[in-house]
Computed example of a mutant assay.
Amino acid sequence: PYDGYARNADSHKRVMKQHADANTVAPRTQDLDNSIWAAATEAWQDVLRLGEKNGFRNSQASVLAPTGTIGLAMSCDTTGVEPDLALVKFKKLVGGGSMQIVNGTVPQALRRLGYQEEQIEAIVTHIAEHGVVVDAPGLKAEHYSVFDCAMGERSISAMGHVRMMAAIQPWISGAISKTVNMPETATVEEIEEIYFEAWKMGVKALAIYRDNCKVGQPLSAKKKEAEKVEVTEKAEETIRAAVEKVIEYRPVRKRLPKGRPGITTSFTVGGAEGYMTANSYPDDGLGEVFLKMSKQGSTLAGMMDAFSIAVSVGLQYGVPLETYVSKFTNMRFEPAGMTDDPDVRMAQSIVDYIFRRVALDFLPFETRS
């Protein structure tokens, strides 16, 4: 038995007997219930007999767990003790979007109430379109309450949730995982009353959920309608005038002419040989850089080709050469070391050498980094 069972043994066995007694007087409405009731009665008698002999391992015999997710996976229209949220509801999906869920037991309930198939079809069509049974063709007003749900135009009152929990609580030694749904307009005083009445009825625990109290809730009775914003004619004119005055500034690519001056430099950095061609605008500085490594097809050669294209496009869109020089000089990776350039004797990488060289060729002394 669990720790503390010895001093609570009499109370625990009394609770177990209350479970068995509640099972004995449980109402049975259908013939199918008889076999289930008989099996439950036998099980509870075994509980009393074995508990008297061995004690009980757990301090609670039963709880009612939340079944929202597994209920949907099992295609259940309601989840445990919870009433259906709405006859037609929308569930938000993790990957985005939503799915429509329609209660599938409505036709069965209508048949039990004596409606004909053509009437059932018309009522179900109305529910699928409007989400409620109100004004459904052929449905009697006195039957509306049969289809009341947790939310929506016809919703079960908050106290109705509490009374249902109070009816089930004697069967369960632990608590019931159950949400009492309240409208968005619920006040602090109304919520206080729910908790107080639940305590008086012997309910061990409950949770309150006020509709739309969270930015996003997984289930909702209907999709939110887009808010309608009225704009006066004067406001429209003001907006239109402002839009017309907006000037969008974007960089414009300045391409080099077909014939352009350039400098081709051969270099060696740490034993790696290559060629750099730096072409410039006739009157406005460097416009493109091409790099060719001696080992064509190598990873380094491919990366240098891609890098030179990216730098050239940036220069033509107006990125200052000083920015490139400040970012890429002193970048360290292999190959690195001695060069054959008398102006740049050491380089920490090929990129470091390239931008030291173009800085010497195209930038004035005071702007070199």
Rank of each mutant, 00 (worst) to 15 (best):
I354H: 00
I354Y: 00
G337C: 09
P335Q: 08
T67G: 02
E334S: 13
A136Y: 03
F362N: 09
A226H: 07
V358H: 05
S59K: 13
S294D: 15
M74D: 11
P66A: 09
L85W: 07
G160E: 03
I123M: 10
Y209W: 11
K140M: 11
S59D: 10
M165E: 03
R28K: 10
T69I: 15
I350G: 04
L206S: 01
R111Q: 11
P66Y: 00
R260I: 01
F56H: 12
M74R: 11
M338S: 10
K224V: 08
R356F: 04
D135T: 05
G160Q: 06
S98A: 13
F147L: 07
A278C: 12
N181A: 04
L300G: 04
E192F: 06
G259C: 02
K214R: 12
A128H: 15
R250F: 12
G297Q: 06
D21A: 03
V215Q: 09
S280Q: 14
V133R: 02
C76A: 14
R255G: 08
V269C: 01
S177D: 13
E193V: 12
M16D: 04
L85Y: 14
V289W: 13
A175I: 09
T67Y: 05
P66S: 08
A158G: 14
W171Q: 03
L50N: 11
G202T: 03
V134H: 13
R357I: 00
W171S: 04
S155H: 13
V313H: 05
T105Y: 11
V162A: 00
G297M: 07
G97R: 06
D341N: 14
G262L: 07
A128P: 01
V319M: 14
P107H: 07
T179N: 14
I354R: 03
M331W: 09
V289T: 09
I263C: 01
E52F: 00
H161A: 02
A39F: 03
T277W: 09
E192N: 13
A198R: 10
D211H: 11
A235T: 14
L139G: 04
G97Q: 05
R112V: 12
A301K: 05
E227C: 00
E42V: 09
G51P: 04
T323Y: 08
A226V: 10
A186Q: 08
L113W: 01
E227F: 00
V358P: 03
E190V: 02
P1N: 01
V252F: 06
P137N: 12
T187N: 05
V243G: 01
D10A: 14
M182V: 15
G114D: 00
E52A: 07
M304S: 00
